[in-house]
Design a protein around this nucleic acid. Structure first.
Lengths: 345, 345
DNA sequence: CTGAAAGCGCTAACAG
DNA sequence: CTGTTAGCGCTTTCAG
């Protein structure tokens, strides 16, 4: 491996000068040229580890993400990586899988790797990032706040849930249920709260609520439970994309169809959402931007630009397609669904 | 920051002893206990950077992945990360976005970070990993081979494409088209080859081929081009999940429906594939396992266990749902689609 | 502006 | 088995 001393020798200068040239510090131009040529000739690559040890800081940011299976988190990851890369940072990826133990191990590993900063989707409010705070390693919390002491990027879940549920009501559904995530996820609680507020606004005095892990099977089970009740709902507000797939599964298993037998709106858009039958109405989150924003907050901190804690809360967008419409024969669809709907049965 | 010397002082031993204890090297048990207690008391975390510099190796593996948008690559990533984490390694994630320039920059960065090994989905056969080979940093190539000199994990694309196209023919479609990726992706070429072989086997003497970037818009454009031909195909074999969404888009835009007006099978399964209308027939790849396998090959190398180059080629699975059936009234479906299909038109 | 020298925190060779 | 010492490759004082 060619090291700085080799370049120095080749260029006939000291290692210090090579370092200076390569880091763009002031040097005599003739030296600079000689050094650059030598480095080129030897195909020199600075050893980042040695540099980091000396500088006492790395160009690496850690990312602890709940999952990659869900497009939501995959897009957040993409946003973080893109932004980091664009600013000369690398991303050390850890998937916590929503497991507190894995998350704790991830935190430990990242600390040992001396990451410059951290982006994390904490499992719950119990996630312990105190060592990072103590070591003054900047961190930004994504998706679920963590007590408000750290920078954060979240989405207005209450508003999104209200919009979705309100829309269901407005479309004529009378007994909307809420299928949400586990109680230790603040998103799950907020979406439930938004649902309730919409019910209150619509003067609906009964509620239908099921909670489940944010997974397909969880969604399926919740839907089944709800539909099996003596007094079942006639519509679903679903609090997450993974849940939605499970709900879809259970509902089609029963031969029910959205937009006719049941109404439905779910959090999280997807490229395929327009193509399921019927096209799904969704509350879209600015997923990629969440990642970008998170990385940007972190980078600003790393540059020492900002000192006050900042909480960024982004908005959702309700996209109405077919699944939330009431009794709709395909009628209003953009021509596409023309042929594939039932007569009434 | 508490360092090894602090622990040594606290425990009343030398730094070397602390190091030995923490690394599980033989020491007197009473010392071991004292050291552990001291480390615990001080909440000591070894500095991984310093360790790496000294040991001349890191616990980090690099992953250069084409994209995270596609579930295929997201799952591969998950497989790699999972396996790495389980074996005490971390993953430095780089998204190349299929851009040669970004990929080159990623390679450079990872080299500087002194990664212990690399998993990469190379953009094309022109991807230059020579510096890694020269430095004897193990690498494994995923999805698309790179000249056969490195360990690799790929999928039998030819076989998968043959199965898909053959199935289309067997179902009664007579003019199947192939929508595949760009010519510099070997997967695209292989899938095209498989398609052709199936045509030959079925004695079809004309072919319908369109290539596009592996993206939704590419898929849509390719489908449009094919359908606008004077002599259009009556079925599609689509070479990738992203393409499929675009094809779906274009086809439903035209008011056509799969399983009736057109046949379709696509590479890549997805959780939602059973729920689009009609349910999509697919060639499923063992995505997660690809990642796992890749990481395992790499880890074996890092442990110095193996020396001969190994090419792992995994099989695909054809999953027949509705989109490939000919003129199918729902009839043969497994019960689920019972209600939501057209009567005839 | 340049070079010599120290040192980041850790581990491995060598003595004891 | 333990401590002392050297050194991984780089950057950054400090003199010159």
């Amino acid at each position: 491996m060619v090291k700085i001393a080799d370049v120095a020798r080749e260029a006939g200068v000291s290692a210090a000068t090579v370092s200076r040239v390569l880091n763009g510090l002031p040097t005599g131009p003739e030296y600079a040229e000689r050094v650059r040529a030598a480095a080129e000739r030897l195909d020199y690559r600075p050893n980042g580890i040695a540099r980091s040890l000396r500088r006492q800081t790395t160009d690496v940011i850690g990312l602890i993400i709940s999952s990659l299976t869900s497009p939501f988190f995959a897009e957040v990851t993409r946003g973080v990586e893109d932004t980091a890369q664009r600013n000369g940072y690398s991303v050390l990826l850890c998937i916590s899988d929503e497991e507190p133990k894995r998350e704790a191990r991830n935190l430990r590993v990242l600390e040992q790797q001396q990451i410059a900063g951290l982006v994390i989707t904490p499992h719950s409010a119990r996630t312990d990032v105190s060592r990072f705070r103590a070591a003054r390693i900047p961190l930004v919390v994504v998706d679920r706040p963590l007590g408000g002491r750290d920078d954060s990027v979240t989405v207005d879940s209450v508003e999104g849930a209200m919009a979705a549920t309100g829309h269901l009501l407005a479309a004529g559904w009378q007994r909307p249920a809420c299928i949400t995530g586990p109680g230790d996820a603040s998103t799950a609680r907020d979406r439930l709260a938004g649902y309730r507020r919409a019910l209150a606004d619509g003067s609906v005095d009964k509620e239908w609520v099921a909670t489940a892990r944010y997974s397909e099977s969880g969604g399926a089970a919740a839907a089944a439970e709800l539909l099996d009740r003596r007094d079942p709902p006639d519509a679903f507000f679903v609090a997450g994309g993974n849940l939605a797939i499970g709900v879809l599964e259970e509902v089609t298993r029963r031969g029910l169809v959205f937009g006719r037998d049941l109404g439905m709106v779910t959090f999280d858009d997807a490229p395929w959402a327009p193509f399921v039958s019927p096209p799904m109405s969704v509350v879209a989150q600015p997923t990629y931007d969440i990642g970008v924003k998170a990385a940007e907050l972190l980078l600003a901190r790393l540059r020492g630009e900002r000192t006050r804690v900042r909480h960024e809360v982004l908005s959702t967008t309700l996209i109405v397609r077919e699944s939330s419409k009431r009794g709709s024969r395909p009628a209003r669809s953009a021509g596409s669904a023309k042929n594939r709907t039932a007569r009434s049965s």
